[in-house]
Write a protein that binds this DNA or RNA. Sequence first.
DNA 1: AGAAGATAGCTTTTT
DNA 2: GCTATCTTCT
Length: 708
Amino acid sequence: MNLQLLNERQREAVLAEKGPLLILAGAGSGKTKTLTTRIAYLVEERGFLPDSILAITFTNKAAKEMKKRLRLELGLDANKIWMGTFHSFALRILRLHAEKIGYTPNFIIYDSYDQKQLVKSCIEELGLSSDYYPSASVKSIINNCKSKMIRFDEYSKYLDKDYIDIYELYEKKLRSSDSMDFDNIILNLVKLFEDNKDILNYYVDKFSEVLVDEYQDTNRLQYHLVNLLTKKKGNLVVVGDDNQSIYGWRGADIRNIMEFKKDYKKANIIKLEQNYRSTKRILAAANELISNNKNQHKKELWTDLDEGDKVVYYDASSDREEARYVVKTIRKEISKRTRLEDIAILYRTHSISRVFEEALRKEGIDYQIIGGQKFYDRKEIKDILAYLRLIVNNKDDISFLRVVNEPKRAIGKTTIEKITNYSLEHDISLFEALELMVENAELPKKSLAGASEFVSIIKACDTDELDAYDIVSRVVNSSGYIAMLEAKKSIENSTRIDNISELVSDIKLFTSEESSTLEDYIANVSLISDVDTIDESKAITLMTIHSAKGLEYKIVFLVGFDDNIIPSYQSKDSSTKLEEERRLCYVAMTRAMKKLYITRAKRRMKFGSLMYHSPSEFISEIPVDLLDEINVPESLDREFGFNSYQKQLQSKEKNENKYYVSQTVRHDKFGLGKVVSYHDETKIIVIAFEEGGVKKLHVDFAPIIVED
DNA sequence: AGAAGATAGCTTTTT
DNA sequence: GCTATCTTCT
């Protein structure tokens, strides 16, 4: 280990004797290097045992990365360090002590889809209206309470009484199906610790130092957990940058980092302010932007690197034109021998990515998209996984409902109802109910055959005898799932089959490499995130700004830089939210090393129809002398300065006084055209004419609706 | 029971 | 423009 490779502040952070310590690490300030050096130093120079160090990262990928670096320094000892996300850390301990909190060690994890289904079934069971209680919003209320550590009965005082019933049933059902949602993983660990002081003390004694990376993105619950572990010894080192706090919506509490000194009175603060990533101009632009945020730790990020080029700002007329410009620029870069893996396209929401994807595909440039339709979110993958989960845990009702009639086994609504009633009567799970009903032949003939087939498929897979690979291949074949897909030949179905075989080979690899039991595979799979799947192969990376946190690229295109996109239209009502959007923008800009392009489009497809946007207000926060501005004149577009974020008019009924988006119209002067947007209050209508481009007209001079 | 057709709601971000 | 869910028809 060579401490000379570090700058003075970094060295200070490595050598600091004892926590609590807050390392404020600006973007690109060598945070990971500092952290890994500190850990290596603790082990090699100060004689800490590797397994007495707990390092918590934001993603599994970051943990892997850090472990890789530490292996170079410490060899195999590096593997003994406790390193992972909050969730993987909590799971590791919970699996050891599951019985103490009324779970089996094989409990499963419900992701947000499962969670929503479960909430829905609770609402139904209570006989409440799903219109009054939309499962998605009830779900997010529940999550909110948990991550902010608000007691649900307290919170629900402001809501209907029914909410508390839903909540209680939800928790009861989670328990009885031996499963936890994401927040319960942490919550249950806290509970385990608080109810079993001996276990807590064991870990408090065990860990001589606890390091938390990306501290600005921890929530109240995680804060509490860390506090339990380190309060006594004060052996806490946290690393973060308040300017990069972008997960407020998920309950991340910026107070954790802003008030660190208040919570830990003896805390030291070390600031890493030298940036090793970006050129002077890029950094200056980002600094100027973020200086508009009121609530922040004082920091002066500076760099020794070159001046660099100005930030290019391209104001396109349409999203397609924007994509064309980006692809054209990428082509130029490639001819200058820039490698594809050094380029990233970043955007605020996934929906922006489509035009860019299309343009790249047309040009034959390799790309990878992170997130969006995730592999594990695809229907066929979820279905196969549901089979596997049901095999591991017969009590998993959500998975049961998902696959009992997939492929069709003549078990429809009525039969499901019978099974549900039976299970409620006998207080057993749905699968157990079905098993008994098959035994006693308590089903109509038609359903009975399918039901007994289903039971035997699940029963045939014994996790003690067969390994994960054996079971998944058995399920895929015997369930008739593949046969169902093959029966109807289509492109989608053949990609579905491909996806399933990808899953099977993934499991095969897992079986041969890490562990062989299906339980272990299922336990792992629900924690895999998208960022974990980024590979450094030769392709351009497309992703949301959120996924880009912690990454860097030589060339960055920040696209879709329009008002109501960034900042998002939903963040306009409060300055807290607006500041988070600005930080998001800051994160995006500081990913760039050599060159930063910011692009936007006046016209963009959204919700399946054209929308008009002004430039993002953030562009005016970057000093003009740092910008190289390219504006695409399209004379007609100039008129549309107004901010048009309006809902598409849905009704298709004919109404003389109303115009609808996509409606075909005729104007005696401009000819045939299509309605692009319509303002009810101002009676302004925007039409794209076949001849003569886009025009904005008042309803008084409006064209005639063409009957179709 | 299941397929085909109709409709609502979505698009902020994810461990 | 897409998909998950609801409705209607066979």
